[in-house]
Amino acid sequence: MRYTAWIKGLLVLFLLVSGTSHASKLELIQLDVGGDSGAAFSGDCRIVSGKKPVKRYRLQGKVPAKYWLPGDAVSCSLQKTKMTQRLDATITRGDVVEIRQVSMPPLRWISITSTGPWGAAKGTSSAARPLWQ
């Protein structure tokens, strides 16, 4: 009896580690928001995961902030609360920094996208809210 429970536990652990479920195959993309300490921001990210519908996540916080987004690709638009502050956003996949974008005063918005269905990683800073592509 004890031996059977031990084998079942080992089998479950093996299945979790071996990546047999779709969730275990999902890659986490890291979004770091930095800049002037305590700078407040808000925005949203679109997350693409395979052939599933695009998901939209709202973000709000203060620098420094770190988010782990589950998906194949992300596209984020962030707005700083005060135009006089500096804000930067970085997308990292694994140990590789794909893109880093800085918004200096008086620019208020940052758009940043990872490599994905829309092409190579890219970022922009602007005074007005960027339109989704």
Rank of each mutant, 00 (worst) to 15 (best):
T4G: 06
A5F: 15
A5Y: 15
W6N: 13
G9N: 14
L11P: 01
V12E: 09
L13Y: 10
L13R: 09
F14D: 03
F14H: 09
L15V: 05
L15P: 03
L16D: 03
L16V: 14
V17W: 08
V17Q: 07
S18I: 10
G19N: 01
T20E: 06
T20W: 08
S21V: 07
S21M: 09
H22I: 07
H22F: 10
H22L: 11
S24L: 06
S24F: 11
L26P: 02
E27D: 11
E27R: 15
E27N: 08
E27Q: 12
I29L: 12
I29W: 00
D32V: 11
V33M: 09
G34M: 06
D36K: 12
D36F: 06
D36V: 11
S37C: 03
A39G: 13
A39W: 02
A40E: 10
A40M: 02
F41Q: 03
F41H: 00
S42N: 07
S42T: 04
G43R: 07
G43V: 09
D44T: 00
D44L: 05
D44Q: 11
D44H: 15
C45I: 09
R46I: 00
R46E: 07
R46C: 02
I47R: 03
I47M: 04
G50K: 01
K51W: 04
K51A: 14
K51L: 15
K52M: 03
K52C: 01
P53G: 00
V54D: 10
R56P: 00
R56W: 08
R58N: 12
L59H: 02
Q60F: 09
Q60S: 13
G61K: 05
V63H: 01
V63I: 08
A65K: 07
K66M: 06
Y67R: 10
L69Q: 06
P70S: 00
D72Y: 03
A73I: 05
A73S: 14
S75A: 13
S75H: 05
Q79T: 12
Q79G: 11
Q79D: 06
K80L: 04
K80V: 01
T81D: 11
T81Y: 07
T81F: 07
K82G: 05
K82N: 15
T84Q: 14
D88I: 01
A89C: 15
A89I: 12
A89W: 12
A89F: 13
T90W: 04
T90D: 08
T92R: 15
T92Y: 09
R93P: 03
R93V: 15
R93E: 08
G94F: 09
G94P: 01
D95Y: 06
V96Q: 13
V97R: 15
V97I: 15
I99N: 07
R100T: 14
R100P: 02
R100A: 01
Q101T: 13
Q101P: 06
Q101L: 00
Q101R: 14
Q101G: 01
V102G: 04
S103G: 12
M104V: 06
M104F: 08
P105N: 10
P106F: 03
R108S: 00
W109S: 04
W109F: 15
I110W: 02
T113H: 03
T113V: 05
S114E: 01
T115A: 08
T115K: 11
G116A: 00
P117W: 06
P117T: 10
W118A: 09
G119A: 06
G119R: 05
A120N: 09
A120C: 00
K122N: 09
K122R: 13
G123T: 13
T124M: 12
T124L: 15
S126D: 10
R129V: 04
W132F: 03
W132S: 01
